[in-house]
Nucleic acid binder design. Structure first.
Lengths: 145, 145
DNA sequence: TTTGTTGCAAAACGTTTGCAGCCTC
DNA sequence: GAGGCTGCAAACGTTTTGCAACAAA
């Protein structure tokens, strides 16, 4: 287990304690697996990748992804036309996504000015926790379509 | 028909001509309906709202929303957990969305600095056309959940 | 012991597809 | 007249749900 995983494990434990939810081995196994994945993944892929290690049902994968999302440990993306994509959130640099409207290719990028501008935003009646920025357009390959 | 609709009709006609697509009454009826709606709508709602005027099938609604999206006449949003939401794009101020992670409440907001920072972004191999920014968090009602 | 959580299978949901017939070009 | 577009219904893939069994508290 990476060092990072120790702290996310603690975050999950705190979260479960605070809500009086149960600390099941499935939840920790899924969290652990998620933090070993770099980049995006979907529920099905996570499910399959765990079959040889700690076997959990797809229903539990969905339940747990939802729980971890509420706990701030994963971020959920709904890119157009695909199944929901997830990624770990702790220890991940804040980044944005460019999405090709023709072929669906997704790339990550960072931009300090954008980050600053968004983080400076404050709401009167809304307590923001995170954000997703998707810039749509055409990638190099699809430029002329 | 509002004045605005005349110009979006022209945009659609140009688009169809350029691609050698057919100018069917369904496409214009759907476009017209969409530009009479303020705010978000989904395919089902659009379908139902047209039943008393120009009747089209749900399949055609989906086809046409896709076409109008490619033509830049509507913007598609995939807010978490719901069916895809659409909104007209021409004559609509660029705006962002705050999404409550507890109850799903969606609000629009604008911010000049964010807009500027995003529009200033240029990519080497990507031609951007539009963007969506979703800020997630907890709304006033759900602050303590 | 209580009851939240799991696995399984079935169901639900939004969306897409196949196909015959229609209507734009 | 050719073939793109439509409506219909069936199919699809992802996600949710109901329920009995299990296990954390």
């Amino acid at each position: 287990m990476k060092e990072e995983n120790i702290s996310v494990t603690n975050i999950l434990t705190d979260y479960l304690n605070r809500r009086k939810y149960r600390k099941t081995p499935e939840r920790y196994a899924i969290l652990d697996k998620i933090y070993s994945i770099d980049g995006h993944f979907d529920a099905e892929g996570l499910y399959e990748s765990m079959q040889n290690e700690y076997r959990v049902s797809l229903a539990t994968i969905y339940n747990t992804l939802d729980l971890l999302s509420n706990a701030g440990l994963v971020i959920k993306h709904q890119f157009d036309g695909f199944s929901a994509q997830y990624e770990k959130s702790i220890g991940t640099h804040i980044h944005n996504h460019s999405v090709c409207i023709i072929c669906g290719a997704i790339k990550e990028f960072t931009d300090k000015k954008i980050k600053k501008a968004i983080q400076a935003k404050e709401f009167a009646n809304f307590q923001s926790t995170h954000y997703s920025l998707y810039i749509y357009g055409k990638c190099k390959k699809c430029r002329n379509k």
